[in-house]
Design a protein around this nucleic acid. Structure first.
Lengths: 297, 297
DNA sequence: TAAAAATACTCCATAGGTATTTTAT
DNA sequence: ATAAAATACCTATGGAGTATTTTTA
Protein backbone atom coordinates (compact mmCIF):
# COMPACT_ATOMS: atom_id res chain seq x y z
CA UNK A 1 0.00 0.00 0.00
CA UNK A 2 0.80 3.69 0.17
CA UNK A 3 0.75 3.89 -3.58
CA UNK A 4 1.59 7.57 -3.69
CA UNK A 5 4.86 7.02 -1.91
CA UNK A 6 5.60 4.14 -4.27
CA UNK A 7 4.91 6.40 -7.24
CA UNK A 8 7.32 8.95 -5.86
CA UNK A 9 9.99 6.29 -5.40
CA UNK A 10 9.27 4.92 -8.86
CA UNK A 11 9.74 8.31 -10.48
CA UNK A 12 13.08 8.87 -8.78
CA UNK A 13 14.36 5.41 -9.69
CA UNK A 14 13.19 5.96 -13.27
CA UNK A 15 15.02 9.27 -13.39
CA UNK A 16 18.24 7.86 -11.94
CA UNK A 17 18.09 4.40 -13.53
CA UNK A 18 20.05 3.35 -10.46
CA UNK A 19 18.59 2.09 -7.17
CA UNK A 20 21.55 3.23 -5.07
CA UNK A 21 21.55 6.82 -6.31
CA UNK A 22 17.77 6.96 -6.18
CA UNK A 23 17.87 5.81 -2.54
CA UNK A 24 20.36 8.58 -1.76
CA UNK A 25 18.11 11.19 -3.36
CA UNK A 26 15.23 9.82 -1.30
CA UNK A 27 17.30 9.86 1.91
CA UNK A 28 16.77 6.20 2.50
CA UNK A 29 18.66 2.90 2.17
CA UNK A 30 18.70 0.92 -1.05
CA UNK A 31 17.09 -2.36 0.11
CA UNK A 32 13.72 -0.89 1.20
CA UNK A 33 13.62 1.06 -2.05
CA UNK A 34 14.12 -2.12 -4.07
CA UNK A 35 11.41 -3.74 -1.98
CA UNK A 36 8.92 -0.96 -2.57
CA UNK A 37 9.49 -1.03 -6.31
CA UNK A 38 9.09 -4.80 -6.34
CA UNK A 39 5.87 -4.43 -4.38
CA UNK A 40 4.63 -1.78 -6.79
CA UNK A 41 5.36 -4.03 -9.75
CA UNK A 42 3.52 -6.87 -8.07
CA UNK A 43 0.48 -4.72 -7.32
CA UNK A 44 0.31 -3.23 -10.81
CA UNK A 45 0.97 -6.68 -12.22
CA UNK A 46 3.70 -5.55 -14.59
CA UNK A 47 7.50 -5.35 -14.70
CA UNK A 48 8.38 -1.67 -14.70
CA UNK A 49 12.18 -2.05 -14.88
CA UNK A 50 14.61 -4.40 -16.52
CA UNK A 51 17.42 -4.86 -14.03
CA UNK A 52 20.90 -6.23 -14.10
CA UNK A 53 23.69 -5.42 -11.68
CA UNK A 54 25.11 -3.06 -14.31
CA UNK A 55 22.06 -1.51 -15.81
CA UNK A 56 18.55 -0.51 -14.81
CA UNK A 57 16.12 0.59 -17.49
CA UNK A 58 12.40 1.21 -17.85
CA UNK A 59 10.33 -1.35 -19.70
CA UNK A 60 7.85 -0.01 -22.26
CA UNK A 61 5.12 -0.40 -19.63
CA UNK A 62 7.35 1.47 -17.20
CA UNK A 63 7.80 4.35 -19.67
CA UNK A 64 4.05 4.61 -19.94
CA UNK A 65 3.56 4.35 -16.18
CA UNK A 66 6.12 7.10 -15.57
CA UNK A 67 4.04 9.64 -17.46
CA UNK A 68 0.93 8.81 -15.48
CA UNK A 69 2.77 8.65 -12.15
CA UNK A 70 3.98 12.21 -12.63
CA UNK A 71 0.51 13.37 -13.57
CA UNK A 72 -1.00 11.74 -10.51
CA UNK A 73 1.46 13.30 -8.06
CA UNK A 74 0.92 16.68 -9.69
CA UNK A 75 -2.85 16.19 -9.45
CA UNK A 76 -2.63 15.51 -5.72
CA UNK A 77 -0.64 18.68 -5.10
CA UNK A 78 -2.98 20.66 -7.33
CA UNK A 79 -6.04 19.35 -5.48
CA UNK A 80 -4.56 20.41 -2.14
CA UNK A 81 -3.68 23.83 -3.44
CA UNK A 82 -7.09 24.31 -4.97
CA UNK A 83 -8.89 23.30 -1.78
CA UNK A 84 -6.81 25.84 0.13
CA UNK A 85 -7.69 28.53 -2.37
CA UNK A 86 -11.37 27.66 -2.13
CA UNK A 87 -11.16 27.82 1.66
CA UNK A 88 -9.54 31.23 1.43
CA UNK A 89 -12.30 32.44 -0.88
CA UNK A 90 -9.84 32.88 -3.72
CA UNK A 91 -11.88 30.88 -6.22
CA UNK A 92 -15.58 30.46 -6.87
CA UNK A 93 -18.54 32.06 -8.59
CA UNK A 94 -20.35 35.06 -7.22
CA UNK A 95 -23.56 36.39 -8.77
CA UNK A 96 -24.50 39.75 -7.30
CA UNK A 97 -27.89 41.39 -7.63
CA UNK A 98 -28.36 45.10 -7.13
CA UNK A 99 -31.20 47.65 -6.92
CA UNK A 100 -31.24 50.52 -9.40
CA UNK A 101 -30.03 53.25 -7.07
CA UNK A 102 -26.97 51.28 -5.88
CA UNK A 103 -26.13 50.20 -9.41
CA UNK A 104 -24.51 53.56 -10.02
CA UNK A 105 -22.97 54.28 -6.62
CA UNK A 106 -21.79 50.97 -5.20
CA UNK A 107 -21.38 48.47 -8.03
CA UNK A 108 -18.44 50.09 -9.82
CA UNK A 109 -16.34 50.35 -6.64
CA UNK A 110 -17.32 46.83 -5.58
CA UNK A 111 -16.48 45.44 -8.99
CA UNK A 112 -13.04 47.05 -8.91
CA UNK A 113 -12.39 45.86 -5.36
CA UNK A 114 -13.40 42.23 -6.07
CA UNK A 115 -11.40 42.17 -9.27
CA UNK A 116 -8.31 43.30 -7.39
CA UNK A 117 -8.66 41.29 -4.18
CA UNK A 118 -10.26 38.07 -5.46
CA UNK A 119 -9.04 37.71 -9.03
CA UNK A 120 -9.84 33.98 -9.01
CA UNK A 121 -13.51 34.60 -8.25
CA UNK A 122 -15.83 34.73 -11.24
CA UNK A 123 -18.06 37.74 -10.40
CA UNK A 124 -21.21 38.57 -12.34
CA UNK A 125 -23.55 41.49 -11.68
CA UNK A 126 -27.24 41.93 -12.34
CA UNK A 127 -28.08 45.59 -11.86
CA UNK A 128 -31.52 47.24 -11.75
CA UNK A 129 -33.11 44.32 -9.89
CA UNK A 130 -36.06 45.11 -7.62
CA UNK A 131 -35.68 44.23 -3.95
CA UNK A 132 -38.33 41.53 -3.89
CA UNK A 133 -36.99 39.98 -7.09
CA UNK A 134 -33.61 39.68 -5.42
CA UNK A 135 -34.99 37.90 -2.36
CA UNK A 136 -36.57 35.30 -4.63
CA UNK A 137 -33.38 35.03 -6.68
CA UNK A 138 -31.39 34.46 -3.48
CA UNK A 139 -33.67 31.64 -2.35
CA UNK A 140 -33.52 30.04 -5.79
CA UNK A 141 -29.74 30.37 -5.92
CA UNK A 142 -29.81 32.54 -9.04
CA UNK A 143 -27.78 35.12 -7.12
CA UNK A 144 -25.47 34.67 -4.14
CA UNK A 145 -25.42 38.22 -2.84
CA UNK A 146 -28.18 40.83 -2.98
CA UNK A 147 -27.87 44.60 -2.62
CA UNK A 148 -31.37 45.80 -1.88
CA UNK A 149 -33.75 47.86 0.29
CA UNK A 150 -35.41 46.54 3.49
CA UNK A 151 -37.35 44.76 4.70
CA UNK A 152 -35.73 41.30 4.64
CA UNK A 153 -38.20 39.22 6.63
CA UNK A 154 -36.94 35.71 6.13
CA UNK A 155 -34.98 33.65 8.64
CA UNK A 156 -33.20 31.78 5.82
CA UNK A 157 -31.73 35.11 4.71
CA UNK A 158 -29.31 37.34 6.58
CA UNK A 159 -29.15 41.06 5.94
CA UNK A 160 -26.53 43.63 6.87
CA UNK A 161 -27.12 47.38 6.66
CA UNK A 162 -24.47 48.94 4.45
CA UNK A 163 -25.52 52.56 4.63
CA UNK A 164 -28.50 54.92 4.99
CA UNK A 165 -29.46 56.95 1.91
CA UNK A 166 -31.29 60.26 2.28
CA UNK A 167 -34.41 60.57 0.14
CA UNK A 168 -34.59 63.39 -2.38
CA UNK A 169 -37.36 64.90 -4.39
CA UNK A 170 -36.54 64.85 -8.10
CA UNK A 171 -38.42 67.75 -9.66
CA UNK A 172 -38.40 69.35 -13.13
CA UNK A 173 -36.56 72.68 -13.19
CA UNK A 174 -39.85 74.22 -14.32
CA UNK A 175 -41.56 73.13 -11.11
CA UNK A 176 -42.65 75.93 -8.72
CA UNK A 177 -40.50 74.41 -5.93
CA UNK A 178 -37.45 73.76 -8.13
CA UNK A 179 -35.33 76.41 -6.48
CA UNK A 180 -35.93 75.40 -2.86
CA UNK A 181 -32.96 74.17 -0.82
CA UNK A 182 -35.09 71.60 0.91
CA UNK A 183 -38.62 70.28 0.86
CA UNK A 184 -41.07 68.34 2.96
CA UNK A 185 -43.19 65.56 1.57
CA UNK A 186 -46.40 67.48 2.22
CA UNK A 187 -45.23 70.13 -0.26
CA UNK A 188 -45.30 67.49 -3.00
CA UNK A 189 -48.93 66.59 -2.36
CA UNK A 190 -50.13 68.82 -5.14
CA UNK A 191 -47.76 67.49 -7.78
CA UNK A 192 -48.08 64.49 -10.08
CA UNK A 193 -46.00 61.64 -8.62
CA UNK A 194 -43.94 59.09 -10.56
CA UNK A 195 -43.40 55.78 -8.75
CA UNK A 196 -42.11 52.32 -9.50
CA UNK A 197 -44.46 49.75 -10.96
CA UNK A 198 -45.19 46.54 -9.19
CA UNK A 199 -45.83 47.67 -5.61
CA UNK A 200 -45.19 44.11 -4.37
CA UNK A 201 -41.70 43.93 -5.87
CA UNK A 202 -40.25 47.39 -5.35
CA UNK A 203 -39.31 48.35 -1.80
CA UNK A 204 -39.19 52.05 -2.73
CA UNK A 205 -42.86 51.96 -3.69
CA UNK A 206 -43.85 51.13 -0.10
CA UNK A 207 -41.37 53.57 1.40
CA UNK A 208 -42.74 56.47 -0.64
CA UNK A 209 -46.37 55.66 0.12
CA UNK A 210 -45.61 55.48 3.85
CA UNK A 211 -43.82 58.82 3.71
CA UNK A 212 -46.91 60.45 2.28
CA UNK A 213 -49.27 58.83 4.76
CA UNK A 214 -46.96 59.85 7.66
CA UNK A 215 -47.12 63.40 6.33
CA UNK A 216 -50.89 63.17 6.43
CA UNK A 217 -51.38 63.55 2.68
CA UNK A 218 -52.18 61.30 -0.22
CA UNK A 219 -49.88 61.17 -3.28
CA UNK A 220 -51.24 61.87 -6.73
CA UNK A 221 -49.76 58.94 -8.63
CA UNK A 222 -49.69 59.62 -12.35
CA UNK A 223 -46.97 57.36 -13.76
CA UNK A 224 -45.59 53.95 -12.90
CA UNK A 225 -42.26 52.97 -14.39
CA UNK A 226 -39.98 49.92 -14.36
CA UNK A 227 -36.57 51.45 -13.88
CA UNK A 228 -35.17 54.34 -11.91
CA UNK A 229 -33.59 55.78 -15.03
CA UNK A 230 -37.00 55.94 -16.73
CA UNK A 231 -38.39 57.65 -13.66
CA UNK A 232 -35.78 60.42 -13.82
CA UNK A 233 -36.28 60.76 -17.57
CA UNK A 234 -39.97 61.42 -17.00
CA UNK A 235 -39.10 64.05 -14.37
CA UNK A 236 -36.77 65.71 -16.87
CA UNK A 237 -39.66 65.75 -19.34
CA UNK A 238 -41.72 67.62 -16.79
CA UNK A 239 -44.28 64.87 -16.33
CA UNK A 240 -44.12 64.93 -12.55
CA UNK A 241 -41.96 64.59 -9.45
CA UNK A 242 -40.39 61.52 -7.86
CA UNK A 243 -38.90 60.50 -4.53
CA UNK A 244 -35.54 58.80 -4.96
CA UNK A 245 -32.55 57.76 -2.81
CA UNK A 246 -29.62 60.17 -2.84
CA UNK A 247 -27.28 58.06 -5.06
CA UNK A 248 -29.75 58.59 -7.91
CA UNK A 249 -28.07 62.02 -8.21
CA UNK A 250 -25.58 60.18 -10.41
CA UNK A 251 -28.31 60.38 -13.06
CA UNK A 252 -27.70 64.11 -13.60
CA UNK A 253 -30.17 64.69 -16.41
CA UNK A 254 -30.72 68.12 -17.95
CA UNK A 255 -33.75 69.79 -16.39
CA UNK A 256 -33.87 67.75 -13.19
CA UNK A 257 -33.36 69.21 -9.70
CA UNK A 258 -32.66 66.94 -6.71
CA UNK A 259 -33.89 68.50 -3.45
CA UNK A 260 -33.41 66.89 0.00
CA UNK A 261 -36.55 65.96 1.93
CA UNK A 262 -36.44 67.11 5.54
CA UNK A 263 -39.14 64.78 6.90
CA UNK A 264 -38.50 62.37 9.69
CA UNK A 265 -37.82 58.96 8.09
CA UNK A 266 -36.99 60.52 4.74
CA UNK A 267 -34.29 57.96 4.21
CA UNK A 268 -33.94 54.32 3.24
CA UNK A 269 -31.32 51.73 4.10
CA UNK A 270 -29.21 49.81 1.61
CA UNK A 271 -28.59 46.27 2.83
CA UNK A 272 -26.57 43.30 1.66
CA UNK A 273 -28.43 40.01 1.97
CA UNK A 274 -27.44 36.39 1.46
CA UNK A 275 -28.53 32.89 2.48
CA UNK A 276 -28.06 32.56 6.26
CA UNK A 277 -26.74 29.01 5.94
CA UNK A 278 -24.05 29.89 3.44
CA UNK A 279 -20.45 29.30 4.36
CA UNK A 280 -18.97 29.91 0.94
CA UNK A 281 -15.64 31.50 1.85
CA UNK A 282 -15.55 33.73 -1.19
CA UNK A 283 -19.01 35.08 -0.31
CA UNK A 284 -17.96 35.70 3.28
CA UNK A 285 -14.87 37.52 2.08
CA UNK A 286 -16.93 39.57 -0.35
CA UNK A 287 -19.26 40.53 2.55
CA UNK A 288 -16.30 41.70 4.62
CA UNK A 289 -15.02 43.77 1.74
CA UNK A 290 -18.49 45.19 1.19
CA UNK A 291 -18.70 46.23 4.83
CA UNK A 292 -15.35 48.02 4.60
CA UNK A 293 -16.36 49.67 1.37
CA UNK A 294 -19.61 51.00 2.87
CA UNK A 295 -17.72 52.31 5.92
CA UNK A 296 -15.33 54.24 3.70
CA UNK A 297 -18.00 55.86 1.53
CA UNK B 1 0.76 9.68 4.89
CA UNK B 2 -0.87 7.12 2.60
CA UNK B 3 -2.81 9.84 0.93
CA UNK B 4 -4.57 7.53 -1.50
CA UNK B 5 -6.16 5.62 1.33
CA UNK B 6 -7.17 8.89 2.93
CA UNK B 7 -8.75 9.99 -0.33
CA UNK B 8 -10.72 6.79 -0.46
CA UNK B 9 -11.91 7.27 3.11
CA UNK B 10 -12.70 10.88 2.36
CA UNK B 11 -14.86 9.99 -0.63
CA UNK B 12 -16.88 7.46 1.35
CA UNK B 13 -17.42 9.84 4.27
CA UNK B 14 -18.43 12.55 1.81
CA UNK B 15 -20.91 10.18 0.19
CA UNK B 16 -22.40 9.04 3.49
CA UNK B 17 -22.13 12.32 5.40
CA UNK B 18 -21.86 10.07 8.44
CA UNK B 19 -18.66 8.72 9.98
CA UNK B 20 -20.31 5.64 11.47
CA UNK B 21 -21.94 4.45 8.25
CA UNK B 22 -18.82 5.31 6.27
CA UNK B 23 -16.74 3.21 8.65
CA UNK B 24 -19.14 0.30 8.13
CA UNK B 25 -18.86 0.58 4.36
CA UNK B 26 -15.08 0.63 4.75
CA UNK B 27 -15.13 -2.40 7.07
CA UNK B 28 -13.37 -0.53 9.82
CA UNK B 29 -14.13 1.13 13.15
CA UNK B 30 -15.27 4.73 13.39
CA UNK B 31 -12.45 6.22 15.50
CA UNK B 32 -9.57 5.48 13.11
CA UNK B 33 -11.70 6.80 10.27
CA UNK B 34 -12.25 10.08 12.11
CA UNK B 35 -8.52 10.21 12.80
CA UNK B 36 -7.55 9.71 9.17
CA UNK B 37 -9.94 12.42 8.02
CA UNK B 38 -8.58 14.78 10.68
CA UNK B 39 -5.06 13.97 9.54
CA UNK B 40 -6.01 14.56 5.92
CA UNK B 41 -7.51 17.94 6.79
CA UNK B 42 -4.37 18.84 8.68
CA UNK B 43 -2.12 17.84 5.80
CA UNK B 44 -4.17 19.66 3.18
CA UNK B 45 -4.47 22.59 5.56
CA UNK B 46 -8.23 22.96 5.14
CA UNK B 47 -11.41 21.87 6.89
CA UNK B 48 -13.15 19.45 4.55
CA UNK B 49 -16.22 18.76 6.70
CA UNK B 50 -18.38 20.73 9.08
CA UNK B 51 -19.25 18.33 11.87
CA UNK B 52 -21.72 18.22 14.67
CA UNK B 53 -23.00 15.13 16.43
CA UNK B 54 -26.16 15.42 14.35
CA UNK B 55 -24.88 16.44 10.99
CA UNK B 56 -21.79 16.03 8.85
CA UNK B 57 -21.48 18.09 5.67
CA UNK B 58 -18.82 19.02 3.16
CA UNK B 59 -17.37 22.52 3.30
CA UNK B 60 -17.04 24.33 -0.03
CA UNK B 61 -13.37 23.35 -0.08
CA UNK B 62 -14.47 19.77 0.65
CA UNK B 63 -16.88 19.83 -2.31
CA UNK B 64 -14.05 20.91 -4.54
CA UNK B 65 -11.66 18.36 -3.08
CA UNK B 66 -14.17 15.55 -3.61
CA UNK B 67 -14.17 16.07 -7.36
CA UNK B 68 -10.40 15.91 -7.52
CA UNK B 69 -10.14 12.98 -5.11
CA UNK B 70 -12.37 10.91 -7.38
CA UNK B 71 -10.33 11.88 -10.42
CA UNK B 72 -7.09 10.95 -8.71
CA UNK B 73 -8.26 7.50 -7.66
CA UNK B 74 -9.59 6.88 -11.15
CA UNK B 75 -6.28 8.03 -12.62
CA UNK B 76 -4.36 5.54 -10.47
CA UNK B 77 -6.53 2.65 -11.60
CA UNK B 78 -6.31 3.80 -15.20
CA UNK B 79 -2.51 4.03 -15.03
CA UNK B 80 -2.30 0.47 -13.72
CA UNK B 81 -4.62 -0.82 -16.39
CA UNK B 82 -2.77 1.00 -19.14
CA UNK B 83 0.61 -0.32 -18.00
CA UNK B 84 -0.79 -3.83 -18.09
CA UNK B 85 -2.11 -3.30 -21.59
CA UNK B 86 1.24 -1.93 -22.73
CA UNK B 87 2.99 -4.96 -21.21
CA UNK B 88 0.60 -7.25 -23.06
CA UNK B 89 1.32 -5.47 -26.33
CA UNK B 90 -2.26 -4.25 -26.54
CA UNK B 91 -1.34 -0.61 -27.09
CA UNK B 92 1.44 1.14 -28.97
CA UNK B 93 2.48 2.30 -32.41
CA UNK B 94 3.82 -0.03 -35.08
CA UNK B 95 5.24 1.23 -38.37
CA UNK B 96 5.80 -1.63 -40.79
CA UNK B 97 7.92 -1.43 -43.95
CA UNK B 98 7.51 -3.89 -46.77
CA UNK B 99 9.18 -4.78 -50.08
CA UNK B 100 7.10 -4.61 -53.25
CA UNK B 101 6.56 -8.33 -53.74
CA UNK B 102 5.26 -8.88 -50.18
CA UNK B 103 3.06 -5.80 -50.35
CA UNK B 104 0.47 -7.80 -52.27
CA UNK B 105 0.80 -11.21 -50.65
CA UNK B 106 1.54 -10.64 -46.98
CA UNK B 107 0.46 -7.13 -46.02
CA UNK B 108 -3.31 -7.56 -46.45
CA UNK B 109 -3.42 -10.67 -44.29
CA UNK B 110 -1.10 -9.12 -41.69
CA UNK B 111 -3.15 -5.95 -41.58
CA UNK B 112 -6.34 -7.91 -40.99
CA UNK B 113 -4.71 -10.05 -38.31
CA UNK B 114 -3.23 -7.11 -36.40
CA UNK B 115 -6.48 -5.18 -36.61
CA UNK B 116 -8.34 -8.11 -35.10
CA UNK B 117 -5.84 -9.25 -32.45
CA UNK B 118 -4.28 -5.94 -31.39
CA UNK B 119 -7.00 -3.34 -31.93
CA UNK B 120 -5.31 -0.93 -29.53
CA UNK B 121 -2.11 -0.87 -31.58
CA UNK B 122 -1.82 1.94 -34.09
CA UNK B 123 -0.44 0.14 -37.17
CA UNK B 124 0.88 1.96 -40.22
CA UNK B 125 2.29 0.38 -43.36
CA UNK B 126 4.78 1.62 -45.90
CA UNK B 127 4.69 -0.69 -48.91
CA UNK B 128 7.06 -0.80 -51.89
CA UNK B 129 10.14 -0.04 -49.79
CA UNK B 130 13.47 -1.40 -50.98
CA UNK B 131 15.32 -3.76 -48.65
CA UNK B 132 18.24 -1.48 -47.96
CA UNK B 133 15.95 1.49 -47.39
CA UNK B 134 14.17 -0.50 -44.73
CA UNK B 135 17.37 -1.38 -42.90
CA UNK B 136 18.19 2.32 -42.65
CA UNK B 137 14.63 3.15 -41.61
CA UNK B 138 14.84 0.53 -38.86
CA UNK B 139 18.06 1.98 -37.48
CA UNK B 140 16.61 5.48 -37.57
CA UNK B 141 13.39 4.36 -35.91
CA UNK B 142 11.23 5.43 -38.86
CA UNK B 143 9.84 1.91 -38.95
CA UNK B 144 9.66 -0.72 -36.20
CA UNK B 145 9.30 -3.84 -38.34
CA UNK B 146 10.72 -4.53 -41.79
CA UNK B 147 9.58 -7.13 -44.32
CA UNK B 148 12.45 -7.44 -46.76
CA UNK B 149 14.91 -9.66 -48.66
CA UNK B 150 18.27 -10.83 -47.24
CA UNK B 151 20.98 -10.17 -46.43
CA UNK B 152 20.62 -8.50 -43.00
CA UNK B 153 24.23 -8.10 -41.91
CA UNK B 154 23.93 -5.97 -38.81
CA UNK B 155 24.22 -7.16 -35.21
CA UNK B 156 21.86 -4.40 -34.05
CA UNK B 157 19.16 -5.96 -36.22
CA UNK B 158 17.53 -9.35 -35.89
CA UNK B 159 16.03 -11.14 -38.86
CA UNK B 160 13.68 -14.09 -39.06
CA UNK B 161 12.98 -16.02 -42.27
CA UNK B 162 9.25 -15.99 -42.96
CA UNK B 163 9.16 -17.99 -46.18
CA UNK B 164 11.07 -18.84 -49.34
CA UNK B 165 9.69 -17.47 -52.61
CA UNK B 166 10.43 -19.20 -55.90
CA UNK B 167 11.75 -16.93 -58.63
CA UNK B 168 9.79 -16.67 -61.84
CA UNK B 169 10.58 -15.28 -65.24
CA UNK B 170 8.02 -12.69 -66.27
CA UNK B 171 7.91 -12.72 -70.07
CA UNK B 172 5.64 -11.05 -72.67
CA UNK B 173 3.16 -13.51 -74.25
CA UNK B 174 4.78 -12.68 -77.57
CA UNK B 175 8.13 -13.98 -76.37
CA UNK B 176 9.44 -17.17 -78.07
CA UNK B 177 9.58 -18.96 -74.70
CA UNK B 178 6.19 -17.74 -73.48
CA UNK B 179 4.56 -21.17 -73.68
CA UNK B 180 7.19 -23.12 -71.78
CA UNK B 181 6.21 -24.76 -68.48
CA UNK B 182 9.57 -23.93 -66.98
CA UNK B 183 12.79 -22.13 -67.86
CA UNK B 184 16.39 -21.92 -66.84
CA UNK B 185 18.19 -18.61 -66.43
CA UNK B 186 20.55 -19.38 -69.28
CA UNK B 187 17.58 -19.41 -71.68
CA UNK B 188 16.95 -15.73 -70.82
CA UNK B 189 20.47 -14.69 -71.78
CA UNK B 190 19.39 -13.59 -75.23
CA UNK B 191 16.46 -11.45 -74.02
CA UNK B 192 16.41 -7.85 -72.86
CA UNK B 193 16.27 -7.81 -69.03
CA UNK B 194 14.35 -5.38 -66.83
CA UNK B 195 15.79 -4.92 -63.34
CA UNK B 196 15.32 -2.64 -60.34
CA UNK B 197 17.19 0.63 -60.20
CA UNK B 198 19.61 1.40 -57.45
CA UNK B 199 21.68 -1.80 -57.17
CA UNK B 200 22.79 -0.77 -53.66
CA UNK B 201 19.24 -0.49 -52.32
CA UNK B 202 17.37 -3.34 -53.97
CA UNK B 203 18.19 -6.85 -52.79
CA UNK B 204 16.55 -8.37 -55.87
CA UNK B 205 19.03 -6.63 -58.09
CA UNK B 206 21.94 -8.56 -56.59
CA UNK B 207 20.01 -11.81 -56.51
CA UNK B 208 19.24 -11.62 -60.21
CA UNK B 209 22.80 -10.75 -61.19
CA UNK B 210 24.16 -13.65 -59.16
CA UNK B 211 21.68 -16.03 -60.81
CA UNK B 212 23.00 -15.11 -64.22
CA UNK B 213 26.64 -15.36 -63.24
CA UNK B 214 25.98 -18.77 -61.63
CA UNK B 215 24.43 -19.85 -64.93
CA UNK B 216 27.59 -18.75 -66.67
CA UNK B 217 25.92 -16.04 -68.72
CA UNK B 218 25.68 -12.27 -68.63
CA UNK B 219 22.29 -10.51 -68.59
CA UNK B 220 21.44 -7.95 -71.18
CA UNK B 221 20.09 -5.16 -68.96
CA UNK B 222 17.92 -2.77 -70.95
CA UNK B 223 15.63 -1.11 -68.39
CA UNK B 224 15.94 -0.11 -64.76
CA UNK B 225 12.75 0.71 -62.86
CA UNK B 226 11.80 1.88 -59.37
CA UNK B 227 8.86 -0.33 -58.54
CA UNK B 228 7.92 -3.93 -59.21
CA UNK B 229 4.61 -2.86 -60.72
CA UNK B 230 6.47 -0.72 -63.29
CA UNK B 231 8.68 -3.68 -64.08
CA UNK B 232 5.70 -5.92 -64.86
CA UNK B 233 4.08 -3.16 -66.88
CA UNK B 234 7.16 -2.99 -69.08
CA UNK B 235 7.07 -6.77 -69.54
CA UNK B 236 3.43 -6.51 -70.59
CA UNK B 237 4.49 -3.90 -73.12
CA UNK B 238 6.95 -6.39 -74.61
CA UNK B 239 10.00 -4.38 -73.66
CA UNK B 240 11.82 -7.32 -72.12
CA UNK B 241 11.78 -10.04 -69.46
CA UNK B 242 12.19 -9.83 -65.70
CA UNK B 243 12.99 -12.14 -62.79
CA UNK B 244 10.52 -11.71 -59.94
CA UNK B 245 9.51 -13.53 -56.73
CA UNK B 246 6.45 -15.75 -57.03
CA UNK B 247 4.02 -13.44 -55.09
CA UNK B 248 4.40 -10.96 -57.93
CA UNK B 249 1.92 -13.22 -59.77
CA UNK B 250 -0.71 -11.14 -57.95
CA UNK B 251 0.06 -8.51 -60.61
CA UNK B 252 -1.75 -10.52 -63.32
CA UNK B 253 -1.39 -8.06 -66.20
CA UNK B 254 -2.70 -8.80 -69.66
CA UNK B 255 0.07 -10.14 -71.88
CA UNK B 256 2.41 -11.31 -69.10
CA UNK B 257 3.37 -14.96 -68.52
CA UNK B 258 4.99 -16.05 -65.26
CA UNK B 259 7.23 -19.11 -65.74
CA UNK B 260 9.08 -20.88 -62.89
CA UNK B 261 12.87 -20.94 -63.07
CA UNK B 262 14.34 -24.39 -62.42
CA UNK B 263 17.87 -23.26 -61.54
CA UNK B 264 19.47 -24.13 -58.24
CA UNK B 265 19.04 -21.08 -55.96
CA UNK B 266 16.21 -19.69 -58.06
CA UNK B 267 14.49 -18.50 -54.94
CA UNK B 268 14.74 -15.68 -52.45
CA UNK B 269 13.81 -15.50 -48.76
CA UNK B 270 11.37 -13.07 -47.23
CA UNK B 271 12.51 -12.06 -43.76
CA UNK B 272 11.11 -9.96 -40.95
CA UNK B 273 13.68 -7.70 -39.30
CA UNK B 274 13.65 -5.42 -36.26
CA UNK B 275 16.03 -3.83 -33.78
CA UNK B 276 17.69 -6.60 -31.77
CA UNK B 277 17.47 -4.64 -28.53
CA UNK B 278 13.75 -3.99 -28.78
CA UNK B 279 11.50 -5.32 -26.08
CA UNK B 280 8.37 -3.49 -27.14
CA UNK B 281 5.69 -6.06 -26.25
CA UNK B 282 3.41 -5.11 -29.12
CA UNK B 283 6.28 -5.63 -31.57
CA UNK B 284 7.12 -9.01 -30.05
CA UNK B 285 3.49 -10.03 -30.32
CA UNK B 286 3.33 -8.84 -33.90
CA UNK B 287 6.42 -10.96 -34.67
CA UNK B 288 4.78 -14.03 -33.17
CA UNK B 289 1.67 -13.45 -35.24
CA UNK B 290 3.80 -12.93 -38.34
CA UNK B 291 5.55 -16.25 -37.75
CA UNK B 292 2.22 -18.04 -37.43
CA UNK B 293 0.91 -16.32 -40.54
CA UNK B 294 3.94 -17.38 -42.60
CA UNK B 295 3.60 -20.97 -41.37
CA UNK B 296 -0.02 -21.09 -42.48
CA UNK B 297 0.58 -19.69 -45.95
C1' DT C 1 -30.95 12.15 26.81
C1' DA C 2 -29.45 9.84 23.05
C1' DA C 3 -26.82 9.51 18.95
C1' DA C 4 -22.58 10.43 17.00
C1' DA C 5 -17.99 12.28 16.76
C1' DA C 6 -13.71 12.82 19.42
C1' DT C 7 -10.23 11.09 22.70
C1' DA C 8 -7.19 7.60 25.10
C1' DC C 9 -4.89 3.55 24.88
C1' DT C 10 -3.24 -0.72 22.94
C1' DC C 11 -1.62 -3.77 19.30
C1' DC C 12 0.30 -5.15 15.18
C1' DA C 13 1.32 -4.64 10.22
C1' DT C 14 4.49 -2.75 7.43
C1' DA C 15 7.91 0.68 6.01
C1' DG C 16 12.74 1.39 6.79
C1' DG C 17 17.40 0.21 8.53
C1' DT C 18 21.64 -3.02 8.83
C1' DA C 19 24.17 -6.96 7.45
C1' DT C 20 24.82 -10.12 4.00
C1' DT C 21 24.36 -12.72 -0.30
C1' DT C 22 23.77 -13.10 -5.17
C1' DT C 23 24.63 -11.80 -9.81
C1' DA C 24 26.31 -9.92 -14.00
C1' DT C 25 29.97 -7.65 -16.29
C1' DA D 1 36.82 -8.81 -9.24
C1' DT D 2 33.58 -5.60 -8.25
C1' DA D 3 29.63 -2.83 -8.28
C1' DA D 4 24.94 -3.09 -7.59
C1' DA D 5 20.59 -5.28 -6.78
C1' DA D 6 18.34 -8.85 -3.96
C1' DT D 7 17.61 -11.28 0.40
C1' DA D 8 17.30 -11.90 5.49
C1' DC D 9 16.33 -10.11 9.60
C1' DC D 10 15.42 -6.55 12.95
C1' DT D 11 13.34 -2.12 14.58
C1' DA D 12 9.85 1.28 15.01
C1' DT D 13 6.36 4.27 13.07
C1' DG D 14 1.70 4.76 12.53
C1' DG D 15 -2.77 2.73 11.19
C1' DA D 16 -6.57 0.12 13.25
C1' DG D 17 -9.11 -1.77 17.17
C1' DT D 18 -11.59 -1.30 21.93
C1' DA D 19 -13.23 1.41 25.61
C1' DT D 20 -14.57 5.75 26.96
C1' DT D 21 -15.65 10.66 26.97
C1' DT D 22 -17.58 14.77 24.98
C1' DT D 23 -20.95 17.27 22.48
C1' DT D 24 -25.32 19.03 20.60
C1' DA D 25 -29.88 18.81 18.86
Amino acid sequence: MDRLRQLHYFIVVAEECHFGRAAQRLHMAQPPLSQQIRRLEKEVGVELFTRSTRHVALTPAGEDYLLHARQILAAVDAADERARRVAMGMVGRLAIGCVGSATYSLLPALSRLLGRELPGVDVSFQGEMLSQEQLTALRQGRIDLALLRPPVDDATLTAMVLRRDRLLAAVPHTHPLADREELSVSQLAGSDLIVHQAPRLSAMHGVVLRLFSDAGTAPRIRHEVGETSTMVTLVAAGRGVAVVPEPTRALALEGVRYIPLIDEDAHVDLVAAHLTQTEEPHLLRALEMLKDLARQQ
